[in-house]
Design a protein around this nucleic acid. Sequence first.
DNA 1: CGGATTCATCATACGGACATGATGAAATCG
DNA 2: CGATTTCATCATGTCCGTATGATGAATCCG
Lengths: 148, 148
Amino acid sequence: MTMMPRTAEYAVRAAVLLARHYGERRVSADEIATVLGAPRNYLSKTLNALVRSGVLTSMRGPTGGFSLAKTPELISVADVIDVFADAEPAAARCVLEDRPCDSLFPCAAHRRWVTITRIAREPLVATTIGELCGNHRWTNAHIIGPSL
Amino acid sequence: MTMMPRTAEYAVRAAVLLARHYGERRVSADEIATVLGAPRNYLSKTLNALVRSGVLTSMRGPTGGFSLAKTPELISVADVIDVFADAEPAAARCVLEDRPCDSLFPCAAHRRWVTITRIAREPLVATTIGELCGNHRWTNAHIIGPSL
DNA sequence: CGGATTCATCATACGGACATGATGAAATCG
DNA sequence: CGATTTCATCATGTCCGTATGATGAATCCG
């Protein structure tokens, strides 16, 4: 049992990898699978889901592969994870009783629970794939510049 | 796929329920299952795991049942969840490559990733079952007192 | 003691996450 | 066009989270 489903983790790591090559070239599922140490065909399905949800774009044939659909700074970690893991299924259910807690008049426990889950989710929403990547050449190149 | 395993959610809800009866009476697995709408025997296994990990205490026979091992203010939500869901398995793996990231000299992406997961976990550590419960009679009774 | 109640545990089963291998479809290039 | 490369998809299988039902063990009470 884990708090971070493996598929979602594959997705984030693949996105970070693609961010490092954004605007440069496409990366094939084969290469991504090798670098990530993930099963090739399974990852292919995962990447395909990201394409269908608009996070990635793909092209076939030689010179084909995957790339981020937009600049890494505009893709949050939550954008990637949400494709595979429901954001907050627990929030819909009352913490105390066996009923869907009324969202208009939730019980006290429910309010606190929703607050906690929202706060826990916040860093995933606030952080972008670009930040996670750490390679800021496409935004901060002028800052880092020749000093490295 | 969900970010909050059902078993862990059962555990939290059961703990909150037990907090409402803390110092009052034990609650049977049967009653907890009914209130939570959870399968009885499966919940029994879940509660038993909480007993073995020291979060709950149990007694058999009539007048038996489950109760929190200590006051609800001293039990964090993370204490309950950690019994079932690994806290941070993702943190051990490098975000970029297929290798365990060196904890002494982690890559930049890894550092950011660890930070994110830690921040996401923080509210679970900071919040106690007592706070979630909302019934503060055993600590704040003198504050709330007759004013309600 | 003996019956009733309740936790503890085992055997079994089902569905979905995870994975593997094979096949089909699109794009590039000679 | 035909061959190669790569994504897209299907069929199949394994493992674990989840769940069900039955049985054993401990505790209370008459």
